[in-house]
Design a binder for these strands. Structure first.
Lengths: 187, 187
DNA sequence: AGAGTCATGTAATGGGTTACATGATTGC
DNA sequence: GCAATCATGTAACCCATTACATGACTCT
């Protein structure tokens, strides 16, 4: 079976929901997958074209209700089976996520302790904002979407975000403390 | 001040150590930064060229000891100040890291609970391997490198990796349990 | 003699973002 | 009338990986 990149599968997956146009796909990703996936129109439209070429989806122009012309995509049999095959496959190797703060900290002996601490403080603030966003989304889902079949899975992904973000926040605190005290707990 | 991408700064930073050639840079990154940064020769050599063009570094061919010709790079004044300016800057917006397992799980209602669990189990195994690798490196640094000035910062970055990996492992366990029990703790 | 490692580099390709172009429809 | 939103699409660019090409030196 031919393989595609993850972005293609993401779109394939979204086309199983009631998001059927490029514009809808963008909106869904920005709203529901934004904490672990993002995408631009520059990728969406060419990918939709590809799906049709590969006979994984079909297009039908629609302009019901006087709305602007709008291309609605729907999965073919082949599209559905391709998606399901991908879902079953275990994930590849864990990717190495590039981390700017760690890169800066790695060269920490070229700056003062104060400067390193400032960097980490700032990073912690950003992480905390993110954490609160996750919590807010979580609450919103529990209140408004808990009927949806997808809600459960959506909450799992948020839980992942919360746990890893929290761990990063804890690291910030521990590291700041460690640098401040000027002694190495690791020794 | 002109800005460059993070990879360029990473190389700039490494040139402050005794790694002075493209080959050395690759080795250092593979050995010491591999858990949060990676790089390929296809980037290193063109970037080194750029650094020289921008007068952030200078080259000097060297072939001491009969070794194969080797280009040694050293930072200029301008290179050092550019690096320091970048170090002081707080990190940009937190990047959204694409996560394949969450993407698959998000479409979890298109597969059986068993299939979802299998995915997460596999993911957990990979995370555990990673965690053990971090622990092993940590031990090795404590034993052999604790004299080095950089060791402290190196250990901080490892601690970050350990904490976030551990949080992800915990999520795997909680989520598997949750799916197995077939009930939603979030409700 | 052959494997391994030291060493530098480029071309093709993949994957993605940003900026731009275009225009209709909706709500105030 | 005007702003916001709906809607589609492309071209230029950026960043990065992979595969390839080349060749010397070192150790067994």
């Amino acid at each position: 079976m031919k393989t595609y990149n993850d972005t293609t599968y993401a779109i394939l997956g979204i086309l199983t929901t009631d998001c059927t146009s490029g514009y809808d796909i963008k909106k869904l990703i920005d709203q529901s997958l934004n904490h672990f996936w993002k995408i631009s129109y520059g990728q969406i439209y060419p990918t939709l074209k590809l799906l049709v070429e590969e006979e994984l989806a079909e297009v039908a122009p629609s302009s019901e209700g006087g709305r602007k012309e709008r291309n609605e995509y729907s999965l073919t049999e082949k599209g559905v089976s391709t998606l399901k095959a991908w879902l079953e496959e275990p994930v590849q190797q864990l990717p190495v996520e590039k981390n700017e703060i760690l890169l800066k900290l790695f060269f920490g002996n070229h700056q003062s302790n104060q400067a390193s601490i400032r960097l980490i403080e700032d990073y912690r603030t950003k992480l905390e904002t993110r954490y609160q966003t996750y919590t807010a989304i979580e609450k919103s889902i529990q209140e408004h979407e808990s009927a949806s079949k997808d809600a459960k899975y959506w909450l799992y992904t948020l839980d992942y975000g919360k746990r890893t973000t929290k761990a990063a926040i804890n690291w910030c605190e521990a590291t700041i403390k460690n640098i401040t005290e000027g002694e190495d707990i690791y020794e």
